[in-house]
Simulated scan of single mutants.
Amino acid sequence: MTPPPVAGPVAGRTVAVRVPATSANLGPGFDTLGLALSVYDELEVTSLAQPGLEIEVTGAGADDVPRDASHLVVRAIAYAYEAFGRRLPGLRIVQRNLIPHGRGMGSSGAAVVAGLLAAKGLLEGDVEMSGDDLLRLATELEGHPDNVAPALFGGLTIAWMTEDGPQHKKLLVHRGVSPLVFVPEFTMSTSLARSMQPTQVPREDAVFNVSRSALLIVALMQSPELLLAATEDKLHQDYRADAMPATNALVHELRSHGYAAVVSGAGPSVLVLADGPGRRLEAAEIVAGSDTPWEALMLAVDFKGGTVRDITEGST
């Protein structure tokens, strides 16, 4: 018989959480590679003495985010409390979203990570959650670790599954790598994008992606001049092309000019891994003349990952 949950720390604690956007796959590294980017969702979460939810959301996707227990941040907090046998308190959440929703920049993974980090902060001193705990819980909620790993730990991450659960390795990115994301007005459903892929692929395509994934690690860490070749892919982008023709066209246009452009996550945003700030500006100039409006985000690699800190009045 499962023991009843116990109460967590005294109500009134407030924590501040900050989580970066992410771009998964990076071309050939399907469901494995992810990169943290310098666009952030921020929130303050307070535990309340009385049950209930108070949710305030501004910024990206604010009109579509639920204000009840189905809110993804609330679900993640509740999931962590339940996992550690603690009773969920009332919650006040003030959230400011800057990560675009439905654009392939890890907004759902960021919400999951934000909720888990909030739970970690609220339970500090009562329950200690390790990085491995957070990655396991995040993967259970999100379904795969490629977005949540860089959101948690920052930088470039390799994520994989074992019998013991999800694992990750964080790597440093060469300082010459200059990310640029082109964000369209339209959105793309991750579940729809994933449904368009076959369950089997030709052996030569699998071998092709293994070679490019290995090369991509080298290109991102020490040889950015190899990024164009290293971001070639045969496992997922072509299969999804019909669902987002403007994205597919932009990727091919940029690559024809020598830029390492890929679909960001499930799309429809396009990630360019330029080998220097000057090259990034040149890519932005090409897209500025496109018939499809794209918002160009000149970003940096986030090396810190998600953070949480206690901001309770009177705390030190």
Rank of each mutant, 00 (worst) to 15 (best):
R75F: 04
L72W: 05
G121W: 12
T58I: 12
I93H: 06
D68N: 13
A111K: 07
A69Y: 11
A78D: 05
I99W: 04
M105Q: 13
A119Y: 12
P89C: 02
L72A: 11
G90Q: 07
A83L: 06
A60N: 03
V127T: 13
N97E: 03
T58V: 15
M105N: 03
A80D: 01
H71R: 07
G61E: 07
R87I: 00
N97I: 06
E124R: 15
H71Q: 11
I93K: 09
L72D: 02
D64A: 15
L123C: 09
Q95I: 04
L116A: 02
Y79L: 04
P100L: 08
R103Q: 13
R87A: 09
V94H: 13
H101C: 11
A114Y: 10
G61D: 05
A60P: 05
R67G: 09
G125F: 13
I99V: 10
S107Q: 01
N97P: 06
V73I: 15
A69W: 13
D126F: 12
G115N: 07
G102C: 07
V57S: 02
D63G: 14
S107R: 04
L98N: 09
P100G: 04
M105G: 08
P100D: 03
S107D: 02
A76K: 07
R96K: 14
A114P: 06
R96G: 02
A78C: 02
R96M: 00
V73S: 04
V127I: 15
L88F: 06
F84A: 01
G102D: 02
Y79P: 00
V94D: 12
G121M: 08
R96S: 11
Y81G: 00
A83R: 15
V57E: 02
I99S: 02
L117R: 15
H101T: 15
